Amino acid sequence: MKIDLTGRRAVVTGSTAGIGFGIVQGLAAAGAAVLLNGRTQDRVDAALQQLADTVPGAQAAGIAADLGTAEGCKAFLNAAPETDILVNNLGIFGTAPFAKLSDADWQLYFDVNVMSGVRMTRAYLGPMVDRGWGRVVFISSESGLNIPPEMVQYGFSKAAQIAIARGLAESVAGTGVTVNSVLPGPTDSEGVRKAMARRAEATGVPADTVAERFVKELRPSSLIRRLATVEEVANMVVYACSEQASATTGAALRVEGGILRHPG
């Protein structure tokens, strides 16, 4: 199977590093014209240079905007009013005891992880339907089904994404537009590596050992017994954005290494 997205435009939010940047690389390599996003121009410029180095000839541009705010989404959409593919990747994560989470913490996770995708999809979905083709993907998490007690606020936001994606898929049934969520498990991304490095520094244990213990102790049902790679997650997303995925919609697509035991 050869995925060819030549002629398609793709927006990937929160995409200057980690899973988001991996998705940008995958879409660009498949021929899509990609529009990446970060909060600062420096991050956007660095990501564009990295993309040029790793995917020669990539059609790419970037917009610096904080999509965790209504104002940032408005500025982005004013600059890029249409797309064929939207990947709602922007997200934050972190551990905290439930009793220590403030109202502001809950609001932050809702604004960044949930409302960014709501606002972007609300703007782009209608024109996709009018054109008779489109792809929307929400980057959720296995934590949206397997709510982690150490980060309930994160699991809540990821569960919300799964629900929104399913409802939107039903709302555009029969139009040629598909909407899916993708559920990565713990992934060897920039953000996870930084978290593991902080834990390693605090405990004096090597970062690789911290990662191994994390999977073994906190995700013991993992069948791959390791962190997923960014490329493994990006591959699923690129497929979901392709012509070949025309019958895949309303789905929660797993790239979580078998952590989730229940089917469906």
Rank of each mutant, 00 (worst) to 15 (best):
D111L: 07
R261M: 14
F93G: 15
V192T: 15
G191I: 03
V136R: 04
M196P: 11
A195G: 14
V210W: 08
P263D: 14
R213H: 14
S181P: 00
A169S: 15
S222P: 12
A207E: 09
A173Q: 12
G22A: 01
M1P: 13
M115S: 08
R254P: 10
R213F: 10
V192K: 15
L67S: 00
V136A: 01
A202K: 13
A99Y: 14
G144N: 00
R119Y: 02
V118M: 04
A28Q: 04
D130A: 12
S181M: 00
G62F: 08
D208F: 06
N78L: 11
T95K: 12
D208V: 04
N78I: 06
D105G: 09
S141R: 00
V34N: 11
A123H: 10
D45Q: 13
I19H: 05
A80E: 15
S116D: 00
V12N: 04
G94T: 01
A165D: 00
V152A: 14
S246V: 09
I147S: 06
E150G: 14
Y239T: 07
M196R: 10
G155T: 01
A29T: 10
A33M: 12
L90D: 12
M128N: 06
Y154K: 10
G7E: 02
G250Q: 01
A202W: 12
M115P: 06
A207C: 11
D188Y: 10
V177T: 04
A60T: 04
M196W: 09
W133N: 02
E243S: 07
S15K: 02
S141N: 01
A245L: 08
A10P: 13
T209E: 15
E82H: 15
F214E: 06
E231C: 10
S221K: 13
T121M: 13
A159E: 00
V55C: 11
F98S: 08
T16S: 02
N180G: 05
M236A: 15
A64C: 09
S189Y: 00
V136F: 02
R219L: 06
W106A: 09
A58L: 06
Q161D: 09
T178I: 05
A234H: 05
V136D: 03
L101G: 05
A234E: 03
V114K: 14
L51E: 00
R225L: 14
E232M: 04
F138Y: 13
K194L: 13
N88E: 05
N89F: 12
A33E: 15
Y109R: 08
S143K: 07
V87P: 02
K74G: 15
L36N: 09
R39E: 03
V34A: 07
E243I: 13
T40F: 11
G62L: 06
D208I: 05
A228D: 02
E212W: 02
L48Y: 01
S189R: 02
L67I: 03
T187Q: 08
L36H: 07
A195Y: 08
G155R: 01
V11L: 05
T121F: 05
A47S: 02
P206Q: 04
L227H: 11
L101D: 05
T83G: 03
E243F: 07
